[in-house]
Computed example of a mutant assay.
Amino acid sequence: MHNEALVGLLDELAGTEVSVAAGVVTVGVPAIGDAVRVAMRDVLGFEQIIVPTGAPGLELGIRRGHEELPLIVTVDDVAFMPAYAADMLVPGARLEVPAMPHMVMYSEMHRDVRALGRAIDDEDLDLDLGTLAATLLVHRCFLAGAVRVGLWPVRVAAWWEYMWARVGARLPLDPFRPDPVWDRLMADVTEARRLSAQPAHRDQEVSRGS
């Protein structure tokens, strides 16, 4: 009954595409070009809500280890909690990051990362390296948070990787921790670029590689 009720409520959200296979529910949200994939056994609870835009949504609690992570699915977006900055960098790293929101919308993440990716090529724009390092770290937290709840933001990650390739070596930022999941996401970025045969910074041409 728990699983049937969950799938039924997700299916009621106009604009989503819901399917279930092998105990995993997939909720495609065409408006953001991504899908949430979550094992049914990891859904600890769910509740119908109305989001600030007035649209209906479903808030889920997702089990990740000993944590319960919030996830909100709406008719045209997904909200999730960013990962912790301290979990991104090697132990003992210096942390200088601005305050992060408790939750971030997928569309906002995409907009912010893309905007900075476009700005970084503006030769007339004077970007402070310390501020840029903190911003790229925050954006990496957004991406890691999305992946933790079952999203796979290849297009957004492509913008991040493009910026990192341009300026990463010059930033006052300690090394990132080894992360096999991040490595797989970057591999999908590379594959998507190969398939599209388009410039690396054109995210609209980068589709999911797998």
Rank of each mutant, 00 (worst) to 15 (best):
H2A: 10
H2L: 06
N3I: 07
E4S: 15
E4D: 15
L6S: 06
V7H: 05
G8E: 13
L10C: 09
L13M: 01
L13E: 00
G15T: 03
S19N: 13
S19W: 02
V20Y: 00
V20L: 15
A21E: 14
A22S: 15
G23C: 05
T26A: 14
P30M: 09
P30G: 06
A31K: 13
I32Y: 05
G33D: 14
A35W: 03
V38L: 14
M40C: 13
V43H: 12
G45Y: 06
I49T: 11
I49F: 12
I50T: 15
P52A: 08
A55E: 14
E59D: 12
L60K: 00
G61E: 11
R64D: 15
G65R: 07
H66D: 14
E67V: 06
E68H: 00
L69V: 14
P70D: 10
T74G: 05
T74I: 05
A79V: 04
A79Y: 03
A79P: 02
F80Y: 15
A83C: 10
M88T: 13
A93L: 03
L95C: 03
E96Q: 10
V97Y: 05
V97P: 04
P98Q: 04
M100H: 07
M103F: 13
H110Q: 14
H110L: 06
V113H: 00
R114P: 00
R114S: 11
R118M: 10
R118F: 10
I120F: 06
D128I: 05
D128Y: 02
G130I: 07
T135I: 03
T135K: 09
L136H: 04
L137M: 09
V138R: 10
R140T: 09
C141R: 00
G145P: 08
R148W: 11
V149H: 04
W152A: 02
V154S: 06
R155L: 01
R155Y: 02
A158F: 00
A158P: 00
E161T: 02
E161W: 03
Y162N: 06
R166A: 06
V167I: 06
G168H: 06
G168E: 12
G168P: 04
A169D: 14
A169S: 14
A169E: 12
P175K: 03
F176S: 01
E191M: 10
S196I: 07
Q198W: 02
H201D: 12
R202F: 05
Q204H: 11
Q204S: 13
Q204M: 13
E205A: 14
R208C: 11
S210P: 06
S210W: 13
